[in-house]
Design a protein around this nucleic acid. Structure first.
Lengths: 188, 188
DNA sequence: GCTCAAAAGCTAATGCCGTTAGCCTCGGGT
DNA sequence: ACCCGAGGCTAACGGCATTAGCTTTTGAGC
């Protein structure tokens, strides 16, 4: 082995800090290299190209998110678990809005791969409700849609009015919880 | 006036067609210019720069979306109107997935400006429910979150399982409709 | 019909970025 | 003591956005 200064993980670290501080638009190999104290081409020793860096970042973000949500859900079940899940999700987005936005910058297939764990957590959380196999899938998708939609919109400051977003999210949580209670397979 | 060959609107047209066919990643001034049969710098006679082009595209997309949703809601009220609104929204996304994805490429303040009309429609639609002024705002936000979240995820093919997305969306609609029925101001 | 100013096009040039090629240099294993 | 490969570097290319400055067209007013 030679100098162990940098590594793929370290590059991702630097890139994430950069995005946190300056937004997704500032993510450039030149900027990452500069922060890492290295010439731009040197990054290619650790990362295949910009696209791969984005994918690695997305995977890392998904992992962080899954971990937080996973431990938030631990020991709770049913409605309480759903509330904890949704709250933890938003807390993460509020803590790292740019990071969450970066999730949307990688081509979805790769993010999806990294997100399998999170989906697993959601599936497990919803198992408390008596839904048949296909209904759980639909329910997880609805949960994802609601939470992710809110997260994206809040992260990009799309809610303009002065009403408190905390209250809006409370309402969304109640909506989802109520919806899950009455969830039956769609008739069609 | 000189040759009226191009115009800001025409440039936006070309750009939208480009995005429809090749995705948001393909949006480049060079590509737009080539399609318009013009040299790249000529575009600057109609559009200030790439960022402005993106903003104009977003405004146009928002207008299209608002128009379709507006006419879908016409003559309906309450639950039926909400169902029509959500259905029209998704239909638009399915018809132009890349276009919908392009909405997220412009800095939100400008998209928001263009989206005021759509928010107005949603506010009007939800007036049928007996909500106080602040609750309507929260309700509109929840509706936006659910629909937009589903739209984004579907547009970027984030739903992997084989279950029918139509059925998932039915469930989401039922969830939202049920949620609106029981919407009370969050206590806190 | 002629004129001419401005609108709308063009070419050339600049600078940033991603990416590749090829070289140099450590430092750990033999 | 040697060597070899990991990990760094510089140089160079091509694509892109953007700017500067020129040329062409055209329609409005005479």
């Amino acid at each position: 082995m030679a100098r162990a200064a940098l590594s793929a993980a370290a590059v991702v670290d630097v890139a994430l800090r950069l995005v946190d501080e300056e937004g997704v638009g500032a993510l450039t190999l030149a900027a990452v290299a500069s922060r890492a104290g290295v010439a731009t081409p040197s990054l290619y020793k650790h990362v295949r190209n910009l696209a791969e860096l984005r994918a690695l970042m997305s995977a890392r973000i998904m992992d962080e998110l899954s971990e937080r949500i996973g431990s938030a859900v631990l020991g709770r079940s049913a409605d309480e678990a759903v509330r904890a899940l949704m709250t933890a999700w938003r807390d993460y987005v509020l803590a790292h809005p740019h990071r969450y936005a970066a999730l949307g910058q990688a081509p979805e297939p790769r993010v999806a791969e990294a997100g399998e764990r999170l989906i697993g957590i959601m599936l497990a959380t919803l198992r408390a409700y008596d839904l048949d196999d296909t209904s759980v899938i639909h329910a997880v998708r609805c949960l994802r849609a609601a939470v992710h939609g809110f997260a994206v919109l809040e992260a990009e400051r799309a809610f303009q009015r002065s009403e408190k977003l905390d209250e809006t999210y409370d309402m969304l949580i109640r909506m989802v919880v109520a919806g899950l209670a009455t969830a039956t397979p769609p008739r069609r």
